[in-house]
Design a protein around this nucleic acid. Structure first.
Lengths: 253, 253
DNA sequence: AAGTGGTCTAGACCACTAG
DNA sequence: TAGTGGTCTAGACCACTTT
């Protein structure tokens, strides 16, 4: 079963063999792999070696290891497509923020909890919001859920001068969300910019988003600009990469 | 140094301690962490335990482990921002394709190698290109390099009816790239759409892109539409997530 | 209680890198 | 050659899940 003289580490050979069986469907999505004890006997190796093999598959995001239950072929998650064009006045007019608009369009049961705080802008925030480091910003920290599951983290920062006296400084921003309040205050949004990247989650994010090992997160920094080009808001969003794809579209010229 | 009764696994405690020293800068980017032997003595644990601790940091993408050399704090890679708006006729007029335009704007020395082949459309390609499964498509397989390093993989597919008799079926598409040839053939591009996601790389991608463990890839599927809405090209791109961020911008309405 | 994976130890030998 | 990480073994005890 294993070639001990090939130079290829045994645990890699075992991982490759298991991967093969998963790809061919012999081990179907959701099904249980042989236990460590069974693999030890099947391949005639020590426990440490089979654990290394399984770990390779876990890091690659192919299997899920559950303490006390076993190792399972990871079922492919439902992919949600977020069309960024939905960030429209039309949706706000229907009493919905960007997240609600996106989620409902996908058939979710969305909910979110918010914490509001105030802080002094760091270098990055100041740069993106075109203010001075140390200037006061209103921070809205949101945890968004769909069907009870945490699916998105968002930290929104606005120069406090734009939020003072508005519902943006409250937990409940009212109908249409923060963007609607900004427009009521005379700050009409002219453009959006988004900056998209991906990285491995921090340990904290991994537990908040209930991410299995081997799952990256998408990070989006969205900046909303007033019609005169002044930045009104920056929003740092974190999404599990196995559940989201982002859609963008633009005219050729 | 470690609390053996806290319930927190020792290797996690060690990983947390090392992470802390990295974040505070005590171990600067690029610098060497203590060797396994030193960690064994410092924390009074077995080798397996310190190796587990280091592995946590490696999977999190915080350190790089080099056989025979040591463990190093991963230097933050230079982030390249790709502004999708650069995909313009203006750039093509200057004799550059999308990748060259992007790369030069960032001060790269770009190069790329291409392989052309023909295949029959699978379900996904047929759906995205609005053709029938089995219809012939022209496939351009590109490996893009910057300063010699592989930085991007791209697989472009076009319905063959649009490429027959054009330089798109050659390795060298000529000045302005494939899009310029399409326009010459009367297929004027009206819109672009991109679909962005992230995942862990396959083993093959990891070696092609020389990715360290713990680095995800960004996947972009771009579709170019003719002015009448007909899909002309789909392009599956794979980029190392530690080196790229994608920029998008659009008007509020 | 039985079966599963999680953690830890102690020791061995090998492969790669550097001086 | 010395030091580093890579692989593998054998055994122990623990924590979680299921019956």
């Amino acid at each position: 079963m294993v070639d001990r003289s090939s130079g290829v580490p045994i645990h890699r050979q075992i991982a490759a063999a298991l991967r093969e069986r998963i790809i061919t469907g012999e081990y179907a999505p959701g099904s249980k792999l042989p236990s460590e004890q069974q693999l030890i006997e099947a391949y005639g190796v020590s426990r440490g070696t089979v654990r290394e093999a399984v770990q390779v598959l876990e890091v690659d995001g192919i299997v899920l290891v559950e303490h006390g239950r076993g190792v399972f072929v990871r079922p492919s998650a439902n992919i949600v497509r977020l069309a960024r064009s939905r960030l429209s006045r039309a949706a706000r007019a229907k009493n919905e923020g960007a997240f609600l608009a996106d989620a409902k369009a996908q058939g979710f049961a969305p909910s979110s909890s918010v914490r509001v705080r105030f802080e002094h802008a760091d270098e990055r925030a100041a740069g993106l919001l075109a203010i001075q480091p140390g200037d006061e910003v209103t921070v809205r920290d949101r945890v968004m859920r769909a069907n009870g599951l945490v699916v998105q983290l968002a930290v929104s920062r606005l120069p406090r001068e734009f939020t003072r006296g508005t519902a943006i400084e409250q937990v409940d921003t009212g109908p249409g969300g923060a963007y609607a309040r900004l427009e009521e205050a005379g700050h009409h949004i002219g453009r959006y910019g988004e900056d998209v990247g991906a990285r491995m989650p921090t340990t904290e994010e991994r537990s908040q988003l209930q991410l299995p090992p081997g799952t990256p997160v998408l990070t989006i920094t969205r900046i909303a600009y007033r019609e005169d080009g002044t930045p009104l808001e920056m929003n740092d969003m974190t999404l599990p990469a196995d559940r989201y794809r982002l859609g963008y579209e633009w005219a050729a010229e």
